[in-house]
């Protein structure tokens, strides 16, 4: 039963990890959970009708469990080896990726659950029909929800970015 999963594995790995990471903001744990999802898939008696959707649904359930667990440590990016050649990201760049993560995470807090769910799903490549099924929205309402979600997120992010810049200047 592992054949369909094997080909899907290559395709969806990155999307799946990021889908999970954007819910728990812990990239290492996200990779572990993505593996867990595939291990569960391989244990299934029969292949689901929509294997891709099945994987993401299981992932969403796992991350909900995860969120209920104890407070997690805050991960921090740190450069451990200096660059000799010229292609490596500077400590500033690494700091920037962490800042960006913090801001996106905070900005996502300004969305309600349906908005957040729709947005994470569409970013992971789901169709409106699949989003509708998962969120209980009508297919026609998915676009409206996404429109609101995107605008709110872009504005919240810009405010966070502007606010921190002002703060840093003082």
């Amino acid at each position: 039963m592992s054949e369909p999963w094997a080909s899907l594995y290559r395709e969806v790995w990155g999307d799946l990890v990021r889908y999970i990471d954007r819910r728990i903001w812990d990239p290492e744990r996200a990779q572990e959970l993505a593996q867990e999802v595939f291990i569960r898939a391989l244990g299934e008696e029969r292949t689901p009708d929509s294997p891709r959707a099945w994987l993401f649904t299981v992932a969403a359930n796992l991350t909900r469990d995860e969120a209920r667990r104890a407070i997690r440590g805050r991960e921090k990016l740190r450069l451990v080896a200096a660059d000799a050649g010229g292609g490596a990201p500077s400590p500033d760049e690494i700091l920037t990726i962490q800042q960006t993560r913090d801001r996106v995470r905070e900005a996502l807090g300004s969305l309600n659950e349906r908005e957040r769910e729709s947005l994470l799903m569409v970013e992971a490549g789901f169709s409106y029909a699949e989003i509708a099924e998962a969120t209980g929205l009508s297919p026609g309402a998915v676009g409206t929800t996404l429109s609101r979600a995107r605008r709110k997120l872009a504005v919240a992010y810009a405010e966070l970015e502007g606010g921190e810049d002002v703060h840093a200047a003082h």
Binding site: K76, A84, A88
Partner: peptide
């Protein structure tokens, strides 16, 4: 390879 990243955790629990 010029650099790698390390995740460092300030674990609360």
């Amino acid at each position: 390879l010029p650099a790698t990243l390390e995740y460092e955790r300030e674990a609360v629990h």
